[in-house]
Design a protein around this nucleic acid. Structure first.
Lengths: 127, 127
DNA sequence: CTGAATCCTACAGGATACTG
DNA sequence: CAGTATCCTGTAGGATTCAG
């Protein structure tokens, strides 16, 4: 037994290395996960479509990230056995619930980008 | 001029590599930023305190991350020139505005952790 | 078209030692 | 105490090639 006093796990504190927050951070930590979920939030998409829209992602990373999301039950992968195979990706129900928090972050970014840039400039200028 | 048609920058789309969302993601991308901001959200703290609370962070990473946050104007660093020097870190006004979105993510984590774990288990079991 | 497999490199980041 | 400076390593992740 580790410690049960007022369960730090449930408080979601960053203290414990196995806190759920960390698990998720490790997931969305890489830049691609968030971006891909964001795009899929606007509608289902196939592989090449995602690759085009998530500018800068390599084939390897796209595949890898999608696999991870699929494994986590956040994305559903559907293979259509047509002539040139067609694969569609879509957010699952759980995946869609992630859109809210992600959008909050996105809005914060847009809202504070100029402030942050200004702060950086000031900081750098003051050496 | 790149393109001004309905400004993708302001839409915050993940398409453009220089979209504001990406800038922020690169910032909070590393696991430590989020955790440190989280701790500071509960009150000011000094260096060694942060190091103790953010379990697992190395001295190097803590310093580095704090510098970055300071540069972004999200954290304020105050040096008290006492005998053994004392340094206090605190969220700035801007830094505090980040707490909301971060908490949303944290709550999502706690809420969906078991689902995600179950999905992983199922995925792995199904080869 | 959608990937899997391999190779290779840059850099994140830990460990360690030293300073004001 | 709160860092800075070095060294060293693992690995994320790009480029390339092959396959169903």
């Amino acid at each position: 037994m580790v410690t049960t006093q007022s369960d730090p796990m449930l408080r979601g504190d960053p203290y414990a290395a196995d806190c759920p927050t960390r698990r998720i951070l490790d997931r969305i930590g890489d830049r691609w996960t968030v971006l891909i979920v964001g795009v899929l939030g606007e509608g289902d998409a196939r592989f090449s479509e995602l690759r085009r829209r998530v500018c800068g992602v390599s084939q390897k990373m796209l595949t890898q990230t999608l696999r991870g999301l699929e494994r986590d039950g956040l994305v559903r992968r559907t293979v259509h056995p047509e002539v040139p195979v067609r694969v569609e990706y879509a957010l699952t129900e759980a995946g869609r619930t992630l859109l809210g928090p992600l959008r909050a972050l996105q809005e914060w970014s847009i809202e504070h980008l100029s402030d942050v840039s200004a702060a950086q400039k000031a900081y750098d200028g003051a050496e």
